[in-house]
Simulated scan of single mutants.
Amino acid sequence: MPYVNVKITKEGTTAEQKGEIIAGVTELLQRVLNKNPATTVVVIDEVETDNWGIAGEQVTHRRIKGK
């Protein structure tokens, strides 16, 4: 039973987009690793940009700077 945890920044991702991610990851595991989609679990965690850092800087500040 594969378990995949996808973490994204919380910036307005729609339910439809999340559905596409779940379907796409499930299909990828089936195609590449021959995993059963019925037992594949995909969880999406949305993280506030203040709680996500890249290169020692909060994503919130990077977005403001246009990085």
Rank of each mutant, 00 (worst) to 15 (best):
I44D: 03
L33Y: 00
V6G: 01
V47W: 03
R31V: 06
E16G: 06
P37C: 11
G24C: 09
Q30N: 15
Y3N: 10
V47E: 03
I22E: 10
L29H: 13
N34Q: 12
P2V: 07
E46G: 00
V41S: 14
Q30W: 02
L29N: 12
V32I: 09
L28D: 00
T39H: 00
V42K: 08
P2K: 09
G24N: 08
E46T: 01
D45S: 13
E16C: 05
Q30R: 10
K7H: 14
E16R: 04
D45R: 10
Y3P: 05
V4A: 05
A38R: 14
V47H: 05
K10N: 12
T26E: 06
K7G: 13
G24L: 07
K7D: 12
V41I: 15
N34V: 02
V47D: 06
E16T: 10
I21S: 00
I22Y: 11
I22D: 09
A38D: 15
T39C: 03
V41D: 13
E16D: 12
N36Y: 02
E27N: 10
E27C: 05
Q17K: 05
I44A: 01
E16A: 11
K35M: 00
V41T: 15
A23R: 15
L28P: 02
N36I: 02
E46K: 01
E11Y: 07
T9F: 14
L33E: 01
K35P: 01
D45F: 09
N34K: 08
A23C: 10
A38S: 15
I21R: 04
G19Y: 07
A38Q: 15
Q30I: 01
E27P: 03
N36F: 04
E46A: 01
L28R: 01
T14Y: 00
I21H: 01
P37A: 12
V6M: 02
E16W: 05
T40H: 11
V32R: 04
V32G: 02
E20W: 07
N5A: 13
V4R: 03
Q17W: 00
T26P: 05
K7N: 14
A15G: 03
G12W: 04
L28G: 02
K10I: 06
N34G: 10
V25Y: 09
Q30L: 06
T26L: 07
V47K: 04
K7Q: 15
T39W: 05
I8F: 09
T14M: 00
V6C: 06
T40D: 08
G24R: 05
G24D: 06
E46C: 00
A15H: 06
T13H: 14
I44T: 00
N36P: 04
V6A: 06
V4S: 02
E20K: 15
A23H: 14
V41R: 14
V6K: 04
T9N: 12
K7C: 13
G24I: 05
I8T: 11
V42Q: 08
A38V: 14
K18S: 03
V25G: 08
A23P: 08
T40P: 06
E16P: 06
I22A: 12
V6I: 08
